[in-house]
């Protein structure tokens, strides 16, 4: 069973990337990725650049409607994602609980659709 773990962080948490705490911030994520890899559950995953680097596009009346910024203005924003392969939701939640942003934000755990092929 594959689940996507969507890592949501508060703005304050994400801004740590740009401060003296950057080492600690990235160190925590590296350790998390290593743990996922060691357990052989990681399918793929990426960190994302900060929400302010995002561009959002909608189509309205056949025209492109492009905006600067993420899809929704919210206190917590997507900072990265992982797709993991585990047996059931409880195992996925266990991995989610160990993510560095679990306390300063949260993780959405959603099952991945089976391949369309």
């Amino acid at each position: 069973m594959q689940y996507m773990l969507m890592m949501y962080e508060t703005n304050e948490e994400m801004q740590r990337r740009n401060t003296a705490e950057a080492g600690a911030y990235w160190g925590a994520w590296s350790a998390y990725v290593e743990a996922l890899a060691a357990a052989k559950v990681i399918v793929n995953g990426d960190g994302l650049q900060l929400p302010e680097t995002a561009t959002t596009l909608r189509m309205q009346n056949g025209k492109r409607f492009v905006q600067d910024g993420p899809f929704a203005e919210a206190k917590e924003q997507l900072g990265g994602y992982f797709v993991i392969e585990v047996e059931n939701l409880d195992q996925a939640l266990e991995w989610a609980s160990r993510a560095p942003c679990a306390a300063a934000g949260g993780i959405e755990v959603r099952p991945v659709l089976p391949p369309m092929a």
């Binding site: 069973m1 047996e87 059931n88 939701l89 409880d90 959603r110 099952p111």
Partner: peptide, 8 residues
């Protein structure tokens, strides 16, 4: 069913 909550 879809998120596979285990029967444990």
């Amino acid at each position: 069913r879809i998120s596979k909550i285990p029967f444990v």
